[in-house]
Amino acid sequence: MNNIESFILSTLSATVRAGTPLLFAVLGTIFTERSGVMNLGLEGFMLIGAIGGFVASYQTSSLLAAILVAMLAGAILGLVHAFFTVTLRVNQIVSGLAITMLGTGLSGLWGKDYIGVIARRFEPIKIPVLSEVPYIGQILFNHDLLVYISFIMVPLMWLFIYKTRPGLTLRAVGESPDAADAKGINVFAVRYFYTILGGSITAIGGAYLSLAYNSMWIENMTAGRGWIAIALVLFATWDPAKALI
């Protein structure tokens, strides 16, 4: 392999890693916005997931605990967003921006004692056989566990949204809440559930930054990735398969 090929493969492999936090954020937001709740708070969700996961990893040395704490933090923030937008019917744009500010502030306050320390991180795992495939193996199958989970989530989400009854319910609530309500579907409950679920998945994207992409907490480490993810949701037309591309 010459230097040019090696550079291209390394660049493409790095692109997959760099895109993983965005993919988690986009997938989570697809769930939320498919239910009819706009979410502009991705930056806040990712930051709260990043610091929550990092603190849990530092305190327990358990990566499973780190991901669960990150998801819990995202779920709580999702509950706040759902309460304001679904129950109180606050303007969804205003609520999303408030969530961004809340997540940014809380993560900065929570993380001020953890700046500069190192926590346990996700290490690359070579997939047997697949990682040895020329070119493709190095690009796709020589990453950490969270990258592989993001790959698996895409087809599972696509099948769920388009091929299952709960997915049909989700789309019905988002596209025509009045018709869904007439069919006896609890629109409030569906929107609450998917706003909370979407928040927890988005928070994994933030946790990826502090537990895999880096192994430390840096204030405002998302660096605008949440805003990029919002644009990607629109480009993907709320479709998980397009989101992966």
Rank of each mutant, 00 (worst) to 15 (best):
M1Y: 02
L9D: 08
S10R: 15
S10M: 11
T11V: 14
S13I: 06
S13G: 13
T15K: 06
P21R: 04
P21E: 00
A25R: 08
A25W: 02
V26G: 12
V26K: 02
L27S: 14
L27G: 10
E33N: 01
E33P: 01
R34A: 09
G36T: 02
V37F: 10
L40P: 00
L42H: 08
L42T: 08
E43A: 13
M46E: 11
I48N: 00
A50F: 04
F54N: 09
V55S: 11
A56Y: 06
S61L: 01
S62I: 09
A66E: 06
A66Q: 12
I67Q: 15
L68F: 14
L68M: 14
L68P: 06
I76E: 13
L77V: 14
V80G: 15
H81M: 10
T87A: 11
T87P: 06
V90H: 09
Q92G: 03
S95T: 15
S95P: 07
G96R: 03
L97E: 11
G103Y: 06
L106A: 04
K112S: 14
Y114D: 07
R121H: 12
I125W: 12
K126V: 02
E132L: 11
V133A: 05
P134G: 02
L140C: 01
N142E: 05
L145E: 02
V147I: 11
V147E: 07
V147G: 07
F151T: 06
P155I: 02
L156I: 15
W158F: 09
F160Y: 01
F160S: 06
Y162K: 12
Y162H: 04
A172E: 07
V173I: 08
G174C: 03
G174L: 11
E175R: 12
S176A: 06
A182T: 12
K183T: 10
N186S: 09
F188Q: 08
Y194M: 09
T195G: 13
I201C: 03
T202C: 13
G206K: 04
A207H: 14
Y213K: 15
W217V: 05
N220D: 12
G226I: 06
W227L: 11
W227H: 09
A231M: 04
L232D: 01
L234V: 13
P240C: 04
P240I: 12
I245P: 04
I245H: 04
I245D: 00
